[in-house]
Amino acid sequence: MKNIFSLLMLAGLGTVASAQVLTNQPVNPTITNSNVLLDGSTNFSVEAGAQPYVGKGVIIPSVDLVNFQFDLTLADGATFPTMFDGMIVYNRSTGTTLTAGNRSSTATAVSPGYYYFYNPNGYNNQTVQPGVWRPLGGDPRVNIASAETPTNTSVNGNQIYAKRGTFTTNGTSTTPTAITNQTAIASPGSLYRITIYQSGTNNVYANSVYSYAADGTFVTGSPSMSVVYPQGTYNYTVEYTKTNN
Rank of each mutant, 00 (worst) to 15 (best):
M1G: 08
M1F: 02
N3Y: 05
L7W: 10
M9P: 01
L10K: 11
A11F: 09
L13H: 07
G14Y: 06
A17C: 11
L22E: 12
Q25A: 12
P26G: 07
V27S: 07
P29G: 10
P29W: 05
P29I: 02
T30P: 10
I31Y: 11
N33L: 15
N33G: 07
N33H: 08
S34I: 10
S34V: 11
V36M: 14
L38A: 12
L38G: 04
L38C: 13
L38D: 03
D39I: 10
G40Y: 15
G40S: 11
T42C: 14
F44G: 08
G49M: 12
Q51R: 13
G55I: 09
K56T: 14
K56M: 14
P61Q: 14
S62R: 13
F68D: 01
Q69E: 15
F70P: 05
D71S: 13
D71C: 05
D71M: 13
G77W: 10
T79K: 11
F80Y: 15
P81Q: 08
T82R: 09
F84W: 08
M87E: 13
I88E: 02
V89R: 02
R92W: 09
S93R: 04
S93E: 07
S93K: 05
S93Y: 10
T94Q: 12
G95Y: 02
T96N: 12
T97W: 02
L98H: 06
A100H: 10
G101I: 07
S104I: 00
T106V: 14
A109W: 00
G113W: 02
Y118S: 13
N119A: 11
N121P: 02
G122M: 03
N124Q: 12
Q126P: 02
Q129V: 12
L136C: 05
R141C: 02
V142Y: 01
N143I: 11
N143C: 02
A145W: 01
T149I: 02
T151H: 03
T153M: 09
T153R: 01
N156A: 13
N158C: 13
Y161D: 00
G165W: 03
G165C: 07
G165S: 06
T166V: 15
T168F: 07
N170D: 15
G171T: 06
G171K: 12
S173G: 03
T174P: 00
I179W: 03
T180C: 04
N181I: 03
N181G: 15
Q182K: 06
Q182A: 05
Q182M: 14
T183G: 04
A184E: 09
I185S: 03
A186M: 08
A186V: 08
G189D: 03
G189K: 02
S190L: 05
Y192V: 11
R193E: 01
R193Y: 08
T201P: 00
N203S: 15
N203R: 12
A206C: 13
A206Q: 14
N207G: 13
Y212R: 04
A213G: 06
A214W: 07
F218K: 01
T220H: 05
T220R: 08
T220D: 03
S222H: 15
S222K: 10
P223C: 13
V227R: 01
V228H: 03
P230E: 07
P230Q: 11
G232N: 06
Y234G: 00
N235P: 02
Y240R: 01
T241V: 06
T243S: 14
N244K: 05
